[in-house]
């Protein structure tokens, strides 16, 4: 399906993938009583932060996440992806994301999916903040001629 004016958008794949992400978060919530927030689970799995989640469970989640990406590629072929042109830019972005997600107690999954759907005040504010901040960042990078 093509949305008029947005020939590159993939609304069906996006929606179905999104439903699966919601299902995953619902299994985590109703099955284990916890938030499927990737930054928090990753910090727990690597031992960087403590949380109520048992460490083994957090490791299983992270392993599942990697295997899920691999399983998709095995079933449907190579995954289209274009990355920023330089690894140092990726490293800088990763460093900032690491500090920011810990300081702000969550990322797109914890705040954006689990928190928004719970109508959590903190998550609504956090999601609005990182959306605006991301949009401004891309606009500034483009204006400086650094778009990719």
């Amino acid at each position: 399906m093509i949305i008029p004016g947005f020939p590159d958008a993939q609304p069906i794949q996006g929606l179905v993938g999104g439903l699966m992400i919601g299902l995953s978060a619902a299994i985590m919530l109703l099955g284990a009583g916890r938030i499927a927030g990737v930054s928090g689970v990753l910090a727990r799995a690597t031992g960087i932060a403590k949380s109520s989640m048992p460490r083994s469970m957090s490791i299983y989640f992270v392993v599942g996440l990697v295997l899920g990406g691999l399983a998709f590629a095995l079933a449907f072929g190579p995954v289209a992806a274009s990355y920023p042109p330089s690894l140092s830019l990726l490293a800088a972005a990763g460093l900032i994301v690491g500090i920011g997600t810990r300081l702000g107690s969550g990322c797109t999954s914890g705040h954006g999916v689990c928190g928004l759907s719970r109508l959590s005040r903190r998550s609504v504010v956090a999601t609005a903040t990182f959306m605006v901040s991301g949009i401004v960042t891309v606009a500034v990078v483009n204006a400086l001629g650094g778009g990719w």
Binding site: L19, I21, L23, S24, I27, A36, G64, V66, G68, F72
Partner: peptide, 8 residues
Amino acid sequence: SGLIFGIG
């Protein structure tokens, strides 16, 4: 949960 998340 991780598997479904990764596929999605």
